[in-house]
């Protein structure tokens, strides 16, 4: 990782966490838990499980928190379900007033095994001894897809700023500095400033996937993680677009299955949702097809 000021994983949430949460289970405690859960992604979609409306309930009893969640189908990959369950547990337990988080996966073909295993702190291998291939490999593959799919917007930002393909493919991590809303890109003395968002998003992914770890690592890579020949940049950009379309397509499938299982009002049918709609009013499907078709585009999410 580079300088801490450029840490792309920092978000506005950290700045608001100084207020002590209400440990009696009041709205502040629930909001704090929800904020932690918002960091857990459905690995297949690279989107928050809160935003995707998977959370059925958050119950707080003193320093113990119970989270119940349901996935779009009973057939969702157990490896993915396992990742979401353990990530949820770890995120909630990162709150200093939480002593124990208990996670329950509902309505899943392996719901009992996963719930039992995660809460007993077993490993995936202990829970599913017959699975050939561990969670770590799946995580790595998923992280790699997220890397590829976010690269396009970052490179587009540079192309739009007039940076040449030759310069783009030669960039090293130490040439790029994200500060506030701006990303400064050093082109051998000449510095170009572009919008930070797509650059920070990509750096977050490429560092998570482990492809960029030091200052002299090449920033942009092919899907196979090789340096990009300048004359192949266009094809690599199209493959990145394809990876985004794939993820968004799967998102649409999961969302439709989720709604088919639970109706548009969420798992409990009450219409109450843990999702804060205030910043994403598009995600409330009200039956208007034309309106909804514009929702699942990754590019419109930032």
């Amino acid at each position: 990782m580079s300088g801490s000021s450029a840490d792309p994983t920092s978000d506005a949430g950290d700045g608001r966490r100084s207020e002590p949460a209400d440990p009696t289970g009041g709205p502040q405690g629930t909001a704090a838990v929800r904020e932690r859960l918002d960091r857990v992604e459905d690995p297949e979609l690279a989107r928050s499980i809160v935003e995707l409306d998977y959370i059925d309930a958050i119950d707080i009893d003193g320093d113990r928190v119970e989270v119940r969640f349901t996935l779009p189908t009973a057939w969702c990959s157990p490896a993915f379900a396992w990742m979401m369950a353990t990530d949820a547990r770890d995120e909630v337990e990162a709150l200093d007033w939480v002593r124990e988080a208990r996670i329950e996966l509902c309505d899943h073909m392996h719901g009992e095994e996963i719930t039992t295993g995660v809460n007993a702190r077993d490993t995936f291998g202990e829970t599913f001894p017959d699975a050939d291939g561990g969670v770590a490999e799946v995580r790595a593959a998923i992280a790699d897809k997220a890397r590829v799919s976010t690269q396009r917007d970052a490179i587009d930002a540079l192309l739009e700023a007039g940076v040449d393909p030759e310069q783009i493919v030669a960039l090293e991590r130490s040439d790029v500095d994200v500060a506030g809303d701006e990303a400064h890109v050093d082109l051998g003395g000449l510095s170009v400033v572009v919008d930070a968002a797509p650059i920070a998003d990509y750096l977050d992914r490429v560092e998570t996937s482990g492809h960029v770890t030091s200052g002299d690592d090449t920033v942009f890579l092919t899907p196979e993680a090789d340096p990009i020949p300048a004359d192949r940049l266009d094809v690599v950009q199209k493959r990145s677009r394809l990876a985004s379309v794939n993820m968004g397509g799967q998102g649409a499938v999961c969302d439709a299955l989720h709604r088919a299982r639970h109706g548009p009002d969420g798992p409990d049918g009450s219409g109450a949702s843990y999702v804060d709609r205030s910043t994403s009013d598009q995600s409330a499907y009200d039956g208007d097809v034309d309106e909804f078709t514009s929702t699942w585009t990754l590019s419109s999410d930032d």
Binding site: G249, V253, T293, W296
Partner: peptide, 24 residues
Amino acid sequence: AVASAMSTHRERKFGEIMGELLFW
């Protein structure tokens, strides 16, 4: 199969997938 059904409620997604398939 499955992709064609995305023309229900998800016409934009369907269009993207068709675009990719026709391209590749």
